[in-house]
Amino acid sequence: MKAAWAGLKLTIIPLLALGLVVVGIAALGVGAVRMSFAEVLQALGNLGHAEDTHARILYDLRMPRILVGALCGAMFAASGAILQGVVRNPLASPDIVGVAAGAGLAAVFTLLLLPKAPLWALPVGACLGGFLAFVLVYLLSIRTGEVLPIRLALIGVAVEASLDALRRLILVRADDGVAQALTFLVGTVYGADWERLWRVLPFALFLIPLALILHQKLDVLSFGDSTARSLGMRLELGRLVALLLGVALASVAVTGTGILGFVGLIAPHAARLLVGSRFHLLLPASLLLGAILVVGADTLARGLVPPLEIPAGLLTTLVGAPYFLYLMRRVGRAR
């Protein structure tokens, strides 16, 4: 019975991969310009022909959008899976260690201090800000040379709130152009192009395989401090590396799509329900679910009331917030 379930778990990964492909293909046909499946196929055959409008829509607009969404969704989800494991709290997500507010504050500073900076400076600044905010959380959490997960989570929430308040305070006095440029923080795949994909891809190609290689270490960390120690792990170093990896994944994803609310929370959690909490399955499942979630949300976002564009982050938050409440209630009951 158990073996059968384990076998089933293994088939879940290819099933999810298949699901992602299906969602991706469906997404190709959805948008302000409606295309049937046959038209999509025909346009795919015509890629590169500048005079075929359908082919241009597919190649210039929808394909990069789907790929950027899938990649960033996957990275948010992997980040969430790692952070939930290390902090040993199912409610942990990239937002909770300060990444979201840090990114937001840094974006404001970038806009105010470097108004003439090129367009890519904004997401890069946001990425650095997310990282710095995490370093702050981590340093504040160190007590007698160690970082307890519960301390990290609580201080993370406090830092997140303070940085967010600071950002709003600055915005009150800032030029309205700054507030306008910050809309990308809502989390949206709108306007994603190949250039943005090439900006994110190298980091993803480094960070995602790294996380997959480290799956055993992540398992050990998620077992708990005493188990990890008794297994001979240098606990603090291991935890720091894992946290940095999680934060790096989320920060890079922010440069692609802004902060997509709750993807880093729901996707790994749902993955854990499907394949359990061992990282060799949890990570791939989270990556795929995160990608499906974001591509699905963005497809809905452009297909619901075309030609109006709804930020995908709004939809993921709409799904994520009730799920978060449900989780909180369940975690509360388990006590």
Binding site: L61, P306, E309
Partner: peptide, 28 residues
């Protein structure tokens, strides 16, 4: 679509020769 986030594919499908944008609103 809307002024702040117009649908790029709806614009592309119209095959415009020129797009007139607002310097400030559409900077990015």
């Amino acid at each position: 679509g809307s002024r702040a986030v117009p649908s790029l594919e709806a614009i592309l499908a119209l095959q415009p020769q020129v797009i007139i944008a607002d310097t400030f609103v559409h900077k990015d």
